[in-house]
Design a protein around this nucleic acid. Structure first.
Length: 430
RNA sequence: UCCUCGGUAGCUCAAUUGGCAGAGCGGGUGGCUGUUAACCACUAGGUUGCAGGUUCGAGUCCUGCCCGAGGAGCCA
């Protein structure tokens, strides 16, 4: 008998097939039994009818518990009463293992309990749907860049020094030296951009920040493109195209998952480019008009990001931040050197920043001056300064946080469900 | 690190002013021919986070600690 996956079940109408999976739930009503099986690709209901209550299949059915692993065989039938529209008339159940006392029941559980059982929670329908959206988002990102002639250039996770002196790094040892887990592949991207023109890196990043909010993870995934000779304007358009591409793909390919999550797709479907663009000055003015107490010169905190993304029903691009709030390598505006040519993309519906980036300093003298101002050790950045010494080039790039993007697409209240095993403040189990 | 709230059965929660620790789900047993987190009946299940204190009597009040959640700060 042919082993098939539930997602393909409609191709096997009226045929005898085999499904391998786990018991999601079961119900019985005297001489009818219903078995809900999941196999990783979907859910299907199996039925058993028999007049004799001692029917052998009934006895096997009665032994089954939630998450027991089984192989079931039977005939596929279309039935509008079944969840999913198809069901299997079960002729045989082969038990691989009876699961005892599966901790996650079909009723309510608290977040701490579910996080403690994250390795099992992944099997639940909504978690499955979120991670399908994540996988689709990642696939879309790679297709987007690969399709535009970008080269994937993996950057190191173990690094000899801080990309930034200001943020908190995870320190480890590298034989007899100190080493740190990467916070960003950007500096290395600038080197590969000079070799390949258009590059991107995609990998995990680590930040030892004591952040305990709905939008921070200790370990998260970020895609970072870097384009040689691109300006701030060029990179804003690239970011818009990327966001539109991800949106289109998820809306097209994962509609069912958004439905499972009860995520109304309408606000996402309304999004179109170009996104509204504001300078920092304009944004501060607008925030003050809407009651924010932000002082000019302050970086946006969570409440400002949320407020800003609620004012528009589109993602918003904010540019020209005060240079003092931004990284040392940000190119200053030619007219107003106190402003940095940076851009933050705020997702709609209150989700805040999903992209941060900008144009990098390409002038050697200016970069050396900035390193001094930020008290960064020149020796550690020797190779980085070489990029300005040998054929320097204006260039720009950004980083898009995968988890924040997925949380927005799925409209989740917290980022922690957007990655299979989140690393949270003080929490590394399971 | 700070502020707020919480910790009672495997899970989610209730318990009046300090006065017999209880329900639903899950487990077990039985019933039901179309269930949709099925339903109905019965049943087993407790170191009330830990340590101390007040009291005739503490889940409830007090002190300290531990753990968790929400928010703030922090945060290319």
């Amino acid at each position: 008998m042919k082993w098939v996956y539930i997602e393909n079940i409609s191709e096997y109408k009226a045929q005898e097939v085999e499904i391998r999976g786990w018991v999601y739930n079961k119900r019985s009503s005297g001489k009818v039994r219903f078995l809900l099986i999941r196999d990783g690709t979907g859910l299907i209901q199996g039925t058993i009818f028999h007049a004799d209550k001692d029917f052998p299949l009934f006895r096997i059915f009665d032994e089954l518990t939630q998450e027991s692993s089984v192989i079931i065989r039977g005939k596929v039938r279309e039935d509008s009463r079944a969840p999913g529209g198809y069901e299997l008339e079960i002729s045989d159940i082969e038990v691989i293992q009876i699961a005892r006392d599966y901790p996650i029941t079909p009723k309510e559980h608290s977040v701490p309990f579910l996080m403690e059982h994250r390795h099992l929670w992944l099997r639940s329908q909504k978690q499955h749907a979120v991670l399908q959206v994540r996988a689709e988002t990642i696939r879309a990102i790679r297709d987007f860049f690969d399709g535009r002639g970008f080269r994937l250039m993996d950057t190191p996770i173990l690094t000899p020094s801080a990309c930034e002196g200001t943020t908190t790094l995870f320190e480890t040892t590298y034989f007899d030296q100190k080493a740190y887990l990467s916070q960003s592949g950007q500096l290395y991207n600038e080197a590969t951009a000079a070799a390949f023109g258009k590059v991107y890196c995609f990998g995990p990043t680590f930040r030892a920040e004591k952040s305990k909010t709905r939008r921070h993870l200790i370990e998260f995934w970020m895609v970072e493109p870097e384009v040689a000779f691109a300006t701030l304007q060029d990179i804003i358009e690239l970011g818009e195209d990327l966001v539109m591409y991800i949106l289109g793909r998820v809306l097209e390919e994962r509609k069912q998952d958004l439905e499972i999550l009860e995520r109304d797709p309408a606000p996402l479907e309304k999004i179109s480019k170009p996104f509204p663009r504001l300078t920092y000055d304009e944004a501060v003015k607008l925030l003050k008009e809407h009651g924010s107490k932000i002082a000019y010169g302050d970086d946006f905190g969570a409440p400002e990001e949320t407020l800003l993304s609620k004012i528009y029903d589109q993602p918003v691009c904010v540019t020209h931040f005060p240079a003092a709030t931004k990284a040392f390598y940000m190119q200053p505006d030619s007219g107003r050197p106190d402003l940095a040519l940076g851009v933050d993309f705020m997702a709609s519906e209150g989700y805040g920043e999903i992209i941060g980036g900008g144009q990098r300093i390409h002038d050697l003298e200016l970069l050396e001056k900035r390193l001094k101002e930020f008290n960064l050790p020149r020796e550690a950045y020797k190779w980085y300064l070489d990029l300005r010494k040998y054929g320097t080039f204006p260039h720009s790039g950004f980083g898009l946080g995968v988890e924040r993007t997925v949380a927005w697409l799925c409209k989740l209240p917290h980022i922690r469900e957007t990655i299979p095993f989140p690393r949270l403040l003080y929490k590394i189990y399971p």
